[in-house]
Amino acid sequence: MKIVPCPLNGPRNISEFAYGGEVELMPDPNTSSSEEWAEYIFFSDNPAGVVREWWCHSATSYWFIAERNTVTDEIVRTYPASELFKERVEFKKESE
């Protein structure tokens, strides 16, 4: 049973966590092409190496980021999502 170091709860069994997929940055939904959008929705890079991933501690519904090596399954680092997402995100229509 792998141990995941949760930034809020400390080291816990991986069974307490849910995997949330790779961290992918959304292209502008109002200006990106269909191809760009489809790429974002349906494809993952899935590289062999260190990947940034979303993980959620189920008991607290706490989302955080883990940097994990997909080859060795080693978790290199975990940190709050706020380290990655620092700014308030705004959406604007093209016309506005």
């Binding site: 849910a18 949330g20 979303w54 959620c56 519904s61 706490y62 989302w63 999502a81 706020s82 997402f85 620092k86 700014e87 308030r88 995100v89």
Partner: peptide, 14 residues
Amino acid sequence: VYQNMLRWNAQWRL
């Protein structure tokens, strides 16, 4: 739904 909301706002920072 609850986890979705938290995850989205972790990105939007509203």
